[in-house]
Amino acid sequence: MRVTLDIGRFNPDAPNAKPYRQEFILEVEEYYTVLDSLIYVREYEDPTLAVRCSCRASICGSCAMRVNGHASLGCKTKLISVMDKDGRVRVDPVGNMPRVKDLVWDMKPFWDKIRAVDPFLQPEGPEPEEEYIASPESMLHLVGVMGCIMCGACVSDCTVLEVDENFLGPAALAKAYRFTGDPRDGKTKERLKELNEYSGIWDCTRCMECVQACPKGVAPMERIMALRDKTIAAGIRNTNGARHAEAVSDFVKKSGKLDELRLVPRTYGMFNPMSLNSLFAAIPVGLRALRRGKLPPIIPHKVEGKENLQAVRRIFDKVEGKK
């Protein structure tokens, strides 16, 4: 099988070092992974190509890279599944992290954020005589998230990290969920309070990039949503994010529909002088929208028919009542 690898390269030691692209046309077997083909290049074409790997079996998390612009594990991605009709594949280092050389990048920012969420158990109360006991049922929901191999694919493609490097990011937040969800941990509320701060759970834009990129089915965004739910349930509600979620829920319950106009004051907090600034900041857009007739209707839309409205409310009562 003939494949053209289009590799994003960079050698920091070259005089006036600059990223560049290099193509390799290879004759390889159909079962080759992207990583296999890169190793082939290093062995037979260009020994200076830098690529990181170890297990070659999606276990160690060393070989995250971008294939055709999206992060995945080189060793888990079959060439044949990503070649275009001309047999081309584009390979680049992961995004959102500093590059060291070619496809090798610096994991420091990744680990710094993992450390920032205190990724260890902090039990409370006196130590038990023997081991800490947790029932299998209470741990089941953590199985998925414990499958994280710290590869950084999710962090690479996170859209918020592209504009704000302070965001804790998908891997660290998924790790945080792993500990808030552990029945043996005693610091859940403190953890939630911290995650509720800036750059925490509410800054995620729900873009699903991390869910798509993760090779282990950790689905970091789903964990972030679960953390939001937990935070609201724990009574930590004084954030735009929590108010936003509650407001949407209230509107849908009342009318069956969203009410974009009222979403603004409800989210910023109607009586919160601290957020007056951001409220004013939203107004120019509102006025411009008004001039153009783009503002949402003053009288919000409802689902049609009284019986439909009642049915929607009934679902709310039944589901929420059960909680």
């Binding site: 739910d229 979620a245 829920s249 849908v252 529909k257 969203l258 689902v303 049609e304 049915a311 589901v319």
Partner: peptide
């Protein structure tokens, strides 16, 4: 005309089952 909002992923933050039920409807 009688169908509710999908929840837009926001309602699901608060309660996934609630959102799924409205969509199942």
């Amino acid at each position: 005309t009688g169908a509710a909002c999908t929840g837009a992923g926001v309602l699901q933050e608060k309660d996934r089952k609630l959102g799924d039920t409205l969509n199942a409807r």
